[in-house]
Simulated scan of single mutants.
Amino acid sequence: MSRSVPAATAALRVLRYLSRRPVPTPAARIADDLGLPRSSTYHLLTAMADQAFVTHYPDERTWGVGVAAWEVGQGYSIQEPLARLARTPLATLVDTVGQSAHLAVLHGAEVLYIIEERGVGKPPLVSDTGVRLPAHLTASGRAILAALPPAQLRAIFPGSAPLVLRTESGPRTRAALGRILVQTRQRGWATEDGEVTPGYTSVAMSIQARALTASIAVTWAVTDDVEVDVVLEELRRTTRLITARLGRRELP
Rank of each mutant, 00 (worst) to 15 (best):
T41A: 05
D193R: 15
G170Y: 09
Q208H: 03
A176K: 04
S100D: 01
I78L: 14
S19L: 07
V230S: 15
W63C: 00
A52L: 10
A52K: 11
G121W: 08
Q51F: 03
P162C: 10
T239H: 01
L82S: 09
A190V: 02
P24G: 00
A214M: 14
P150A: 05
R3F: 00
G73M: 11
T55V: 09
V231R: 07
R154A: 15
V72H: 08
E250P: 00
P149D: 05
V218I: 13
L34E: 00
E168T: 15
I144T: 10
P171T: 10
A11N: 04
L181P: 04
A31G: 07
T238V: 08
I207H: 05
R61P: 01
E116F: 01
G119M: 10
R240G: 11
A211T: 12
T129D: 02
T167K: 04
L212M: 06
S215V: 09
V164C: 09
R38D: 01
L103C: 14
V111F: 02
A104V: 12
G98C: 15
L148S: 08
P81W: 05
D50I: 01
Y42N: 07
L36E: 03
I30P: 09
L235T: 12
H43Y: 06
I207N: 05
E192G: 00
I216F: 10
E234N: 15
L251E: 08
A10H: 01
W70V: 15
